[in-house]
Amino acid sequence: MNNRFLINYIPGSTPIHKLNGTTKVLGFIAITVAIIATFDFRVMLAIFALCMLGVASMKPNWKPVAFMFGFLFVMNGIIGSLMVFLISPESGLTKTGMETIFWQTEGGKLYMSWELLWYAWAMFFKRVTSLSSAILFILSITPSELAAGLNSLKMPYKVCTIVSLAFRTIPDIARDFTDIKNSMQMRGVELEKASLPNKLKQYVMMLVPLLMSSFAKVENISNSMDLRSYGKCKGRTWYSEHPATKGDYIARGVIVLMFLWCAFYIIFFRNINAPAVDFWCPWVPKEISGYWF
């Protein structure tokens, strides 16, 4: 059951794994802000390279990683781009500032421009970058570090325990889910073959026992927590959160630089000196796009 999850419950041994929870969560926030801030392909490429370098340094199992990128490619790369082409082919112009049409249907209802292709590609690449940062984060952190890290960033500790407790119960609930599903199948519930409305109705039969038996656990778990002083103090300490090491300070230095860069980028390049269009495109002249850098 365990190896079906991407997130790992046992900390690894590479330099990134060894950072503490606070550093990891901070790093993820910094990268996310940077990704959200930019539509410049060159910047995204740099962030992507950084993330993948980090991922590679953790020597992951590449199979699920490749699967995630593949999934994204189908969902957003192919279907998403197709929708752009079908619904709003003019996006090429609005997003990059130019339009070089190289194919169109009669009457010009549907057409394809090089800029549209670039826009679809850049938008997809933004999602790729976003995913790569998520993978970096997921692979590096354990659920306990996540809870501790969130807490040290002023998230109320009760919310943080929700996170770690949820991770604790997921394998149990996943097991109950399959067991209940199996037993309902033996009684005649068919989840695979049925028609859509029927399928939904059959889900009800599975969900009722699953919900009842899952929420029946609440009493026991909360008793065992109450009996061990949960909620006694205003805060709590974390067994899994080791103190910051040299590596953490270096990483945090990098993170601070990143935040500064983000602030500068957002203030200067996205507001004071904002380009006329969102997307940088290599062949659109800077007079049009406003991407003078």
Binding site: T161, L165, I173, S214, V218, S222, M225
Partner: peptide, 16 residues
């Protein structure tokens, strides 16, 4: 504590 646990179990159920 009961609510915390229930919310956590809810989140786990949602994930599963």
């Amino acid at each position: 504590t009961k609510t915390i646990v229930a919310v956590a179990i809810g989140a786990a159920l949602y994930g599963v």
